[in-house]
């Protein structure tokens, strides 16, 4: 291509991409730089930021609520990610059964993901009510112990996970679409060779789905590491503040970050927390990707 043509192509390309380019500069690139700078300052919104070196990062080491919120978040992640994956995968198999009316059932499982999260939050506060809620009613019908859920420091975190699992429909639908891509004759051939359902799952379905599983684990992981709205609403008090629940057991990392930024106006500290969160996410994702060589199979079809 002649040079002038190439320049014209470049200009056309940039012109059509310009909304994103401008938006990226203003809402992503500049904020990243600014946030990095703020993380080394003391900044309360009313005065100019003053440089404090690594103080914000050092302060985290001795901040009990920081560690509490990090511990809670890792707990939620460790419990929530495997449960999400297992339930989504099992649910996808159920929604893949040849049953009449299946499109309706799929829609019903997906439905909770489009409900305003505030509505979901209050609905689950009611369902988890120790005395009048249906969750404990169901447990009692099954002769299982009925915990105090949101009022108990031990059970409030499982309660958050339970509420999050209600919106597992998105993950389930992605698995379902992947299941449909697996050629039927693969399963039929294995069945003729005498492989049972579990062996077929273990040796055909699971390896074929493994790239999708990696994707789902990473997306779910990030959403749990950043969890904010669910614990925020489940611990909302009358003064429109979010306490963190009994013993701060529901104080998530993002909640504590939000409190520092918009309640205590410690913008510098909150920015530093955001970067630490980013680092933690990167490290865990990198470990996951490194491990994936052992369990993710690409293009074995």
């Amino acid at each position: 291509m002649p040079r002038t043509d190439r320049r014209r192509e470049l200009l056309k390309g940039l012109a059509f991409a310009s909304p994103f380019l401008i938006g990226f500069a203003v809402f992503i690139a500049y904020p990243i730089l600014a946030s990095f700078r703020y993380s080394f300052t003391d900044f309360n919104l009313f005065q100019e930021p003053t440089a404090v070196g690594l103080d914000n990062y050092a302060h985290m080491l001795s901040d009990d609520r920081f560690w509490r919120s990090l511990g809670n978040t890792l707990y939620l992640t460790a419990l929530g990610v495997p449960l999400t994956i297992v339930i989504a995968l099992a649910g996808a198999h159920v929604l893949n059964l040849p049953v009449r009316g299946q499109p309706l059932f799929r829609a019903l499982v997906y439905l909770p993901t489009i409900v305003p999260v505030v509505v979901g939050g209050y609905l689950w506060r009611w369902l988890l009510n120790a005395q009048y809620g249906f969750v404990n009613h169901l447990l009692e019908l099954l002769r299982l112990p009925a915990p105090l859920w949101l009022e108990s420091p031990d059970w409030s975190r499982p309660a958050i996970v339970l509420m999050s699992l209600w919106t597992v429909g998105g993950t389930t639908i992605i698995y379902l679409a992947a299941l449909k891509e697996i050629p039927k004759d693969l399963h039929e051939a294995a069945a003729i060779d005498g492989a049972g359902a579990w062996r077929r799952f273990r040796h055909i379905t699971w390896p074929t789905l493994s790239p999708i599983t990696l994707f789902q684990v990473i997306v779910t992981l990030i959403s749990f590491l950043q969890i904010f709205t669910q614990p925020y609403l489940l611990t909302q008090t009358r003064l429109n503040e979010s306490s963190g629940g009994p013993d701060d057991s529901m104080l998530s990392y993002s909640m504590y970050l939000f409190q520092n930024a918009f309640v205590f106006l410690k913008m510098g500290y909150a920015s530093a927390m955001a970067w630490v969160m980013f680092l933690i996410t990167l490290v865990i994702t990198a470990l996951l990707l490194a491990s994936s060589r052992r369990w993710v199979h690409y293009g074995s079809r």
Partner: peptide, 11 residues
Amino acid sequence: PPQITMIPVYL
């Protein structure tokens, strides 16, 4: 993560 950009965008 949106937490990184949240504060500068707010400011």
